[in-house]
Design a protein around this nucleic acid. Structure first.
Lengths: 245, 245
DNA sequence: CCGGGGAGTTTGGTCAGACCAATCTCGCCG
DNA sequence: CGGCGAGATTGGTCTGACCAAACTCCCCGG
């Protein structure tokens, strides 16, 4: 304990205190998803700080996907507690990706790991409805004449649906976020592909194989296939080189 | 395309426009980690918006771990681009955990998946220095008389070091974030354990086994051990029941 | 000549107060 | 009975001011 003795208390900013008060309401369960926060002007009186401080705190919560604000007097107006983690996660990942804090390879590595797990769980727990949803997205991707954007969005939806079938909300939101964060990168790479049709054919075949393994409840195979699918896709993206946004 | 036809453009708030401008600088590489943003008052003139709008945007970036602000005139004062994704991630996960958007089981499931991957990669790529770091943390955890908090922090550091040895920054930051987000929960559960000493002994043994597998470059075993370790720990935490913060 | 101690400057932090705009409520009038 | 408009509620934005931290730099005394 000789080092860092008497480290001074960091001056806390007002908006952080506001944030702490609000978080406290979450932890004690006094505020839950769907509830409305008091109006900003009321919080000013309750907490004894300026409206600017209140608003900065609310902006942070909004960026985290915790609240959503609307003007007006309606039942869903005002600032209400929402649960949109994937949006906040997406934005966060996207910025740090832009700042090159996360190499693209790391993102794909994480995807491979998470989605392998999703596929295994989905193979074990997927409901008929979830399997139908996967088939529906397979059909969508099989449609001829899709633009690269349309195909990618269906592709993303397929992987997200797989995560949903696994029944893990955190992994689902992470999947949504990661796909959202690299969307631009992927679309850029798609445009550079020497043979787009061949690539799409390969992706379609792999998706069908994954769906089959999941439908047959073969967790091991489903996991392996998804992992290989993600890695193979990364290979393709990496080969056309990093795209300037 | 019959539904949602003519969906109106959502009125964008000023601070979001500011955010977009700043993000643009990231994407084009004009602003990089370590650079300083113009002073708030200067941004007011550059972008033609009020200082409040600027500040709300900066708060968001700060919450995401993208910038860090300090008063004064020093070289590292002002608002500078930082790269602290784990802090933003931690806060985000913690709030959504508090709001019960993420069941604890989901968090542990994600951990199991990510850390299995980390262990495998670490077994393949760990440098001597990283292995030494792991040994150091093992020794720390072996010290007698540690408080539950001290043990948990060393435990967390061990798992983070493992992720670092795997060489994946995104996964490392996710690991830090997840551990930070459930720190309170874990400490609360620790206090309820019927036999703390026995549990610690088990954790120590498992950590040593993991380190051994990594040191011997046995990826398969390292992965299996970590996955089992995380699941077993979850079992213990879940058994003592959900703790009221 | 050297060094310490202000004064001044820069920069984020905070506040007060005002006005705008979207949206709903409710009662009046046709 | 129905529609429309006034008013209330609420977030969105701006202006302008002052505070406090932290550095720069120069002046004055040794």
């Amino acid at each position: 304990m000789t080092d860092s003795a008497w480290e001074p208390v960091p001056r806390t900013r007002t908006y952080e205190l506001v944030l702490a008060r609000i978080e406290e309401q979450f932890l004690t369960g006094r505020l839950r998803v769907g509830d409305r926060l008091p109006p900003e002007r009321e919080l000013v009186e309750l907490l004894g700080v300026s409206r600017a401080a209140i608003r900065e705190a609310l902006r942070v919560l909004e960026a985290q996907g915790v609240v959503r604000s609307k003007v007006g007097t309606g039942p869903d107006s005002g600032t209400v507690i929402a649960a949109l983690p994937s949006e906040g996660l997406t934005q966060l990942l996207r910025l740090h990706l832009a700042l090159a804090n996360f190499p693209l390879a790391d993102v794909f590595e994480a995807r491979a790991s998470l989605e392998r797990s999703s596929a295994r769980l989905a193979a074990e727990h997927a409901t008929p409805g979830q399997l139908a949803r996967l088939r529906e997205l397979l059909a969508r991707m099989d449609e001829p004449g899709l633009t690269r954007e349309e195909f990618n969005d269906a592709d993303t939806a397929f992987h997200v649906a797989l995560a949903e079938a696994a029944g893990n909300r955190l992994v689902t939101d992470l999947t949504v976020a990661v796909r959202g964060a690299v969307r631009h990168t992927i679309l850029g790479a798609f445009r550079q592909l020497p043979d787009w049709e061949a690539e799409v054919a390969r992706l379609r075949a792999e998706h069908h194989a994954i769906h089959r393994a999941v439908a047959e409840a073969d967790a091991d195979r489903a996991g392996e296939l998804v992992e290989a699918h993600v890695r193979g896709f990364h290979q393709v993206i990496a080969e056309v080189g990093p795209q300037p946004t």
